[in-house]
């Protein structure tokens, strides 16, 4: 089967350093990929390149076989690749409902009634239906992240990219967000998750990528990578993790 997204030899230099030094992987429909790795190894940069929040220095990113760097309508592409940020990045001037409605109306050109209906459906999926008319600034971190997930879902994306969706949360709120993501996974959503939650990665992912210093060191089934890593660097990383 053809991949939804394929990243080929992706490189990204910032002024001061080479951050990605040739990252390649592919994700197929219904697949869930977890990316793990030390801080600063380029996990976020990888996701941000896929969404073109950063522009790759070289390499290719293929969406259904088409290079996104040569696409005419980049915004249509972005709508089909959802992104969930560490810091939620909700629209602070809007209510919970309007956060979920805006993109549908402006990007997908859905009529308002349809957008509202869809928003309600997705908000109920993440357990936020009761908060519909609240300003998002009044919500807890966990609630914010669930709204952010609903906002992404409203765009009917083919893939969702999660960048450490629980890292900014208090421990007691991590669970509620992870539950939502697990449920999405069960429903067959295709996703790439950057995470430091190893248990969660093991439970949800079909494939784990271990990154270090801008390259994918090792990839495979979660049990292979997390239990029996072949590479010394992976072992070191996991050991440090267990000690923590």
């Amino acid at each position: 089967m053809d991949a939804i997204l394929e990243v080929r030899d992706l490189k990204k230099d910032f002024i001061s350093e080479k951050v990605l030094k040739g990252v390649s992987f592919a994700i197929h429909k219904n697949e869930k990929i977890a990316i793990i790795g030390t801080s600063g190894c380029g996990k976020s940069t990888t996701l941000r390149c896929i969404n073109l929040l950063e522009y790759p220095t070289s390499g290719e990113i293929l969406f259904h076989g088409k290079n996104i760097l040569e696409m005419d309508n980049i915004n249509q592409y972005r709508a089909s690749v959802g992104m969930v940020f560490q810091n939620f990045n909700l629209f602070n001037n809007l209510t919970v409902l309007e956060n979920c409605v805006l993109g549908q109306m402006k990007v997908l050109k859905r009529p308002r009634e349809q957008a509202v209906e869809e928003a309600k459906k997705q908000l109920s999926k993440v357990g936020m239906l009761n908060y519909i008319s609240q300003p998002v600034t009044k919500l807890s971190g966990g609630q914010k992240q669930r709204v952010a997930i609903a906002r992404t879902l409203c765009m009917s994306p083919e893939v969702i990219l999660f960048d450490e969706p629980t890292s900014a949360l208090d421990p007691e709120m991590t669970g509620e967000v992870l539950e939502v993501i697990k449920q999405l996974a069960k429903d067959g959503m295709t996703m790439i998750i950057v995470t430091h939650e190893m248990k969660f990665a093991e439970g949800v992912a079909d494939k784990v990528l271990f990154m270090d210093q801008g390259v994918i060191v090792e990839q495979g089934k979660p049990e292979e990578i997390l239990e029996n890593p072949k590479e010394e660097r992976t072992r070191q990383f996991l050991r440090r993790f267990i000690e923590k």
């Binding site: 929040l53 249509q76 690749v81 810091n87 990045n89 906002r151």
Partner: peptide, 12 residues
């Protein structure tokens, strides 16, 4: 972050 969120859902 908010501008990035706008971009990421495809808003101009």
């Amino acid at each position: 972050g908010q501008l990035e969120a706008c971009k990421s859902i495809g808003m101009s």
